Computed example of a mutant assay.
Amino acid sequence: MAGLLYSVSMSLDGFIAGPEGDMSWLAPLLPPPGGEPAPLAAEVGALLIGRRTFGGDDPYRDTEGEGEAFGGGWSGPQFVLTHRPPPHPVPGVTFVGDLDTAVRAAREAAGGLTVNVLGADVARQCLAAGVLDEVLTCVVPVLLGGGVRLFDAPDAGPVALEPLSVDRGPYSTDLRYRVRRN
């Protein structure tokens, strides 16, 4: 069964997007589109994406990688969790109205590879449902001072994580954890 991995880039002060979901801060810190694909892309079989993330700001805006997962370094099945699907189909994207169906479909489509979860709210829902397996936080060298927090669920209580790896790359320090189950 494919595992669910929440992967995210985060500023050193704990924000994954700037005010109003702004992602332009990340653009100068990303590898160029069309270059060497992100190492994570090789283990991903499907994406499970939140609606705000799917329709939000793109750090690859105005480049050849705009609108593409990993800036064009990955292609495959995408599942967007939403109660407001667009009026017209989007090629390669399935819009799903509930978390259980979205997780089941993404796992099946991943073919044994990782389901990459994108979006803070979807990750929070997966964590609450007990289906999130890992968290990969790519800490980038910038301070934003405000915006969207990595994890904002004041009533959730502590979540135990088991460190798996720390990798220092040219654009970030990547911290990977396994979600501990009680």
Score class of each variant (00 low, 15 high):
residue 61 R to M: 01
residue 93 V to K: 13
residue 48 L to T: 11
residue 167 D to S: 12
residue 35 G to M: 12
residue 2 A to D: 03
residue 170 P to D: 15
residue 13 D to W: 05
residue 123 A to R: 07
residue 165 S to D: 13
residue 161 L to V: 05
residue 116 N to D: 14
residue 170 P to W: 10
residue 33 P to Y: 07
residue 38 A to P: 00
residue 11 S to M: 04
residue 178 R to C: 01
residue 38 A to M: 01
residue 69 A to L: 03
residue 33 P to V: 11
residue 110 A to W: 06
residue 52 R to C: 04
residue 13 D to M: 00
residue 174 D to G: 00
residue 52 R to A: 13
residue 151 F to Y: 15
residue 109 A to W: 11
residue 38 A to F: 10
residue 15 F to H: 14
residue 91 P to Y: 07
residue 28 P to S: 07
residue 88 H to D: 13
residue 81 L to T: 12
residue 64 E to D: 15
residue 64 E to M: 08
residue 122 V to A: 11
residue 24 S to M: 01
residue 55 G to D: 12
residue 112 G to Q: 05
residue 105 A to S: 14
residue 98 D to V: 03
residue 119 G to S: 09
residue 68 E to Q: 15
residue 111 G to I: 10
residue 148 V to R: 12
residue 142 V to L: 13
residue 99 L to S: 15
residue 104 R to L: 15
residue 114 T to H: 01
residue 143 L to V: 14
residue 119 G to Q: 10
residue 48 L to R: 10
residue 66 E to P: 08
residue 4 L to A: 03
residue 86 P to W: 07
residue 95 F to K: 02
residue 104 R to I: 01
residue 121 D to L: 09
residue 22 D to K: 06
residue 165 S to P: 00
residue 8 V to Q: 08
residue 174 D to K: 11
residue 151 F to P: 06
residue 59 P to E: 05
residue 59 P to D: 06
residue 67 G to T: 12
residue 3 G to E: 12
residue 43 E to G: 02
residue 9 S to A: 15
residue 176 R to D: 01
residue 82 T to D: 04
residue 182 N to C: 00
residue 46 A to D: 11
residue 100 D to A: 15
residue 7 S to P: 00
residue 132 L to M: 10
residue 119 G to L: 10
residue 161 L to N: 04
residue 16 I to G: 03
residue 9 S to L: 11
residue 22 D to M: 03
residue 132 L to E: 09
residue 68 E to G: 06
residue 42 A to C: 02
residue 155 D to W: 08
residue 17 A to E: 11
residue 67 G to Y: 09
residue 56 G to H: 03
residue 179 V to T: 07
residue 23 M to W: 04
residue 121 D to R: 15
residue 14 G to M: 03
residue 24 S to K: 01
residue 172 S to E: 13
residue 7 S to C: 01
residue 102 A to M: 02
residue 78 Q to C: 13
residue 60 Y to W: 15
residue 164 L to T: 09
residue 49 I to M: 14
residue 1 M to Q: 11
residue 94 T to D: 08
